[in-house]
Design a protein around this nucleic acid. Sequence first.
DNA 1: CAGCGCTTTGCTACCGGTTGCAATAGCGTT
DNA 2: AACGCTATTGCAACCGGTAGCAAAGCGCTG
Lengths: 333, 333
Amino acid sequence: MSKSSRATAADVARAAGVSKWTVTRAFTPGASIAEHSRERVLQEAAKLGYRPNLLARSLATKTTNLVAILVDDFANPYKLPVLEVLTQALQAEQMAAVLININQHFDHLSAILDADQRQVDAVILVGTDFKDEALNEQALPASRPPLYVLARESTIAHIPAVSCDARVSMAEINQHLWQRGYRRPGFMSGPRSLSTALGRKQHFNTFWQPHCGAPVPELRAGSYDRNAAAQVLRAYLQHTSAAERIDVLMCENDALAIGAIETARHEFGLRVPQDLAIVGYDGDELAATPSFNLTSYRQPLPQMVAALIRMLKGELPPQSLNLPGELLIRGST
Amino acid sequence: MSKSSRATAADVARAAGVSKWTVTRAFTPGASIAEHSRERVLQEAAKLGYRPNLLARSLATKTTNLVAILVDDFANPYKLPVLEVLTQALQAEQMAAVLININQHFDHLSAILDADQRQVDAVILVGTDFKDEALNEQALPASRPPLYVLARESTIAHIPAVSCDARVSMAEINQHLWQRGYRRPGFMSGPRSLSTALGRKQHFNTFWQPHCGAPVPELRAGSYDRNAAAQVLRAYLQHTSAAERIDVLMCENDALAIGAIETARHEFGLRVPQDLAIVGYDGDELAATPSFNLTSYRQPLPQMVAALIRMLKGELPPQSLNLPGELLIRGST
DNA sequence: CAGCGCTTTGCTACCGGTTGCAATAGCGTT
DNA sequence: AACGCTATTGCAACCGGTAGCAAAGCGCTG
């Protein structure tokens, strides 16, 4: 072993007086090796500071234990708990996450190709605003790593999506709002991806449209960003007289809802919920603070991630899942 | 080429009628190769969907273009913009980030050893609460990947830290507070790591102690968490009569400041800044919203990350840097 | 003490690239 | 036509492991 570079299996083998294959076996759980030579190897390995080179191992085994996580939405604070839960769960399985930032310089396709070149075992799209057709394209290499979608529905048949059950959750929210006496609802939507259109908004409208007569007003923020929410609500309130306004605003997620509360309260002096009730979605911890006190719906993040991991490990066939969360009734409704 | 697995350089070579080394050259910028055979190779590669296997390349070149990012503080929303800027900058240099979650199950040492086994080119500690002695230990392998600290100072001589200049920034903040007429300051501290002790708190105290006579009261939150901030401020306000209270609270970062504002305002009915002024640190975008309207100090994140990247690329000798940011005066003072 | 079966060990080949050198080709000279 | 020079290409060896098989070791039986 040269001093400059790190010890290899061959170095340890020499020191322990065995062949390098025996060294490999000492580090392979369940391999056929005599207890005494195992100990001898581990002892020498510790002495030399040897730890198997995972790159070399991955090259030989064709599995890296690396998962690419694609995120395009760093303005949404809810991404943080998602990343926390996801990385922790992956690490518990000896895997690691490569965090890839999707933005105008680096689109989904580039990211997937790049991750593919790095031989990741899977790619997880974390609630990103992808255009479904972009992932349906032939541009994707045939042998690309398996794709999964987390915290968003997918309309692409062959891509499993694990998310919070939009039908059940929106039913709970709708029932709550109805009971509270709200009758003039509005919906604030985020990115205009196809997959979203089929989700929360649809279930919301399906319930209210018959009760309202008219179509439910939609406020399009265009992204999951507080400022975008502020902007679109500002425009709405400026152009709508108090008498004609909605009495409750369902926001596609908490980031939008927080932006909406800020604007309603500080720019228009509206009281929440008396003048305008607001509902979010995600169960972001920030929304629970007294300043916002936002009624929201908690996504079952641990369960969602656990299910996804089981699919990665092959313990569960890849499939789309819709898991139930929990309605969090707070002061904003 | 078998259909099941992806094309290799040898497959492309066969198709193009050259040797596999020529294929490698076609993908190596600046390699010695005839233009016509280069085109021929690229054409066949496109046809077969060949892209070089970065794992194999890394094994041979001993550089992975992977950087491990260690984060222990997912409760702090400011981590999100940090991750955003960092990943984008890395990706612009063809590198990628492995996000590693430090928690009670996975400490710094394990993370560094794990990253080392994956042969990352560097490890970046993103403002994590490490105990300096933990990284000074002999436990670290001699040939570990180079360590860097971002957005936190380091007292470890051989580990470069790129951060916001605490001396300059605190001087600006202190001057501002003095001019506004505050005379009874308090300081809320986060994790009790050594490195922090030398930073913001010290510069704050050095200024105020002489003016106050008594030592500056310290409220120890113990972590960068809104709830921890709420708890420690609650305890302080409960046990301190209005006459004896501080008139301005300097918080070690924005997450703490937001927790403090919430508690002061909603639990004790204090007006901010009339009854208690509050200052944060980081320049988190959330703190700018009307609800908080927090005076803070913006870290020069893009510059910090740019400098760090230059060190990674060897364009700049590894060194600790303290860069100036910008005081953001808002309504909380 | 040969024969048998099971555990343990060593070996060849391979994963998919890169490195550095040697061989070859192409072209202009004399 | 032979020669020399340079641009290009091919090759053996290597990066640090793993898979799967063959050989060796060992204890026991008959």
